Amino acid sequence: PDLGLTQLFADPNLIENLKKNPKTSEMMKDPQLVAKLIGYKQNPQAIGQDLFTDPRLMTIMATLMGVDL
C-alpha cells in the first residue's frame, strides 16, 4: 500500500502550492528536489527510500498533510 501518498502527490498544483508555502518555498528553488517531487506523481513508492536520505521530504510531507512540525 502507498499509505495515501498517491493522493498527496497527485495534486496538479503540488509544486506551485509548495512554492507559495513559507515552510517549503526555499526548498522549491532546488531543481533536483522539484524533479523528485514530479517523479513521485508517477511512482509514489519511490519516496519511501528518499525519506531516509533527504530530510526536506519529511517537511514537505508534513506540509502536504497539514501537520505543523
Rank of each mutant, 00 (worst) to 15 (best):
P1I: 11
P1F: 02
G4N: 15
G4D: 15
G4W: 15
L5G: 05
T6A: 15
Q7E: 13
Q7N: 11
F9V: 04
A10E: 11
P12W: 03
L14I: 10
L14N: 03
I15S: 01
I15Y: 03
E16R: 05
E16S: 08
N17I: 14
N17D: 09
L18P: 00
K19P: 00
K19S: 09
K20W: 06
N21I: 04
N21K: 03
N21R: 03
P22Y: 05
P22S: 08
K23E: 07
T24P: 00
T24I: 06
S25P: 00
S25C: 08
E26A: 10
E26K: 07
M27A: 05
M28W: 01
M28V: 04
K29F: 04
P31F: 04
P31N: 08
Q32F: 13
Q32I: 13
Q32W: 13
L33I: 05
V34Q: 05
V34A: 04
V34M: 06
V34H: 03
A35R: 10
A35M: 09
K36M: 12
K36S: 03
L37H: 00
L37D: 00
I38N: 13
G39S: 14
Y40D: 01
Y40R: 01
Y40N: 02
K41F: 13
K41S: 15
K41A: 15
K41V: 15
Q42V: 11
Q42S: 14
Q42C: 08
Q42I: 10
Q42T: 15
N43A: 05
N43D: 11
N43K: 05
P44F: 07
A46F: 10
A46Q: 13
Q49L: 12
Q49H: 13
D50A: 06
L51E: 05
F52Y: 11
F52C: 09
T53V: 09
T53H: 11
D54H: 01
D54I: 01
P55K: 10
P55Q: 09
R56H: 06
L57M: 14
L57G: 01
L57A: 02
L57W: 11
L57T: 02
L57I: 11
L57Y: 04
M58K: 13
I60G: 00
A62W: 10
A62N: 12
T63Q: 09
T63D: 03
L64F: 04
G66V: 07
G66W: 05
V67T: 12
V67H: 14
V67L: 14
V67R: 07
